[in-house]
Design a protein around this nucleic acid. Structure first.
Lengths: 239, 239
DNA sequence: ATATTGTAAACCGTCAACGGAATGCAACTC
DNA sequence: GAGTTGCATTCCGTTGACGGTTTACAATAT
């Protein structure tokens, strides 16, 4: 076997359902579809110029990610997260991410840190005008995802996968960009990277706990006290 | 609307892929298929007398549960868990279950406790001769699942779903039934139920942490020091 | 004999059509 | 007129077939 070639990474082996999945997820987490709205297989399929097969597969995966709720013979709806769900979500996220921090301290490589750092730098370089809530949420998810990757912990990453899209969705739809958002974001995430590089588990865990809780509180406090912002709910079909 | 009927629970609305999923999961977690073995869609479909559609859907769900690994154009294999994976799995399970205990203290109803208790009683009533590793693992999973149910925490339950089958699989394939297994199992789980009924979060968290860690250690210590028990691994197709 | 290339079979991804369940609306009853 | 029942439409679950990728094997060259 000859391996003298300049390490060309393996060719991407994507299939239609992968694209459908990515497209649907992107649209939903960016707030492009109202919560509770029905997702008709035929509609999605014809709109994306594919058959219903790949769409069905993507919907099953989206259900696993918690973005979509499937009911037998009744079709799919975009998930509706109650305030209670969101609190539980963040409490769980905190527990997972504290663990991720510890594992990252133990297992992260320089390449891992570089990838995480690249996200921060891309955020800093990005134009102010592009800083919509959706864009900011994207950056945040990408950074924290890179921490889970750096943990090199498969079961943990799979658990994060179950929360990630819901967190992303939640952030996009409820984030308010305060004036000090950019500065705070940059500072906290760079500090976290420093702590990880020092590979001291306990301080990492504490910082991450505070960071996750803080971001949740910031998002919540900018909002109305209850769910009155979501008056539509499920209700009768709104086509 | 008349609702005078004696509360007959909603009819089960199952479809073929549900049955395929349950059947496949049951076979895999009971150790009926070797780790790393290929799962051919055609083979499964014809054996279960369904078309490939429901099989494909079940396989996607099994991948989400971590029991199966899908590779594009290459098909599905039963997952192979390394010792490292198993350690990470149990560390994560511990974190989740500690959380579940706290939430169960806050949210569990009497009906929840009854259901959990029913599992313990069924275990006690069961014949000694039926206590195979697979049967014991079933009981254990059922009990702990009822704790997660009692927590009334959807995101947490979904995270548990991602681990449950792997834990189940792990327990079945590696458990040794020591002479004192029955007594220990009964005692520890009844004690846990007591603590939950007292609704004191901190003692619950501590007990659950020790319980999960203890069961992991018991399983591991009865085994060989490394993975030499799994010599097959992936390797070339063994049909 | 070893390594490489060509070839055929096996298998997966996708599609389109069929049958059945669910939903909404109209007709009907009381 | 309020509530119920029947009906038609819509949509989902399932199937079988087709095309492309992968894998295993045989043929060829070195």
């Amino acid at each position: 076997m000859s391996d003298w070639l300049p390490a060309l990474g393996q060719a991407p082996r994507r299939v239609l359902s992968d694209n459908v999945l990515d497209e649907l997820r992107a649209v939903i987490v960016s707030g492009g579809i109202e919560a509770g709205q029905r997702l008709r297989e035929n509609e999605l399929a014809s709109q994306m110029r594919v058959s219903r097969g790949p769409v069905r597969e993507a919907l099953v995966r989206l259900e696993q990610e918690g973005l979509v709720v499937l009911e037998r013979h009744r079709g799919a709806r975009v998930v509706v997260l109650s305030r209670d769900d969101r609190e539980k979500l963040y409490r769980l996220r905190r527990a997972l991410e504290e663990l991720a921090g510890e594992y990252a301290c133990a297992n992260a490589t320089e390449a891992d840190f570089d990838r995480a750092n690249a996200v921060v730098e891309e955020f800093v370089r990005s134009e102010d005008s592009t800083r919509t809530p959706a864009a900011a949420a994207d950056f945040d998810i990408r950074f924290h995802d890179s921490i889970y990757v750096a943990a090199h912990n498969d079961p943990l990453y799979r658990a994060w996968t179950v929360l990630r899209s819901q967190v992303h969705y939640f952030m996009t739809t409820r984030m308010m960009l305060r004036p000090d958002y950019n500065e705070t974001w940059e500072r906290e995430h760079m500090r976290l990277l420093e702590l990880l590089r020092e590979r001291k588990k306990s301080p990492c865990r504490k910082f991450i706990g505070l960071h996750v809780e803080g971001s949740f509180r910031r998002i919540l406090l900018d909002q109305l006290p209850d769910d009155s912002a979501h008056p539509a709910e499920v209700a009768h079909d709104s086509r």
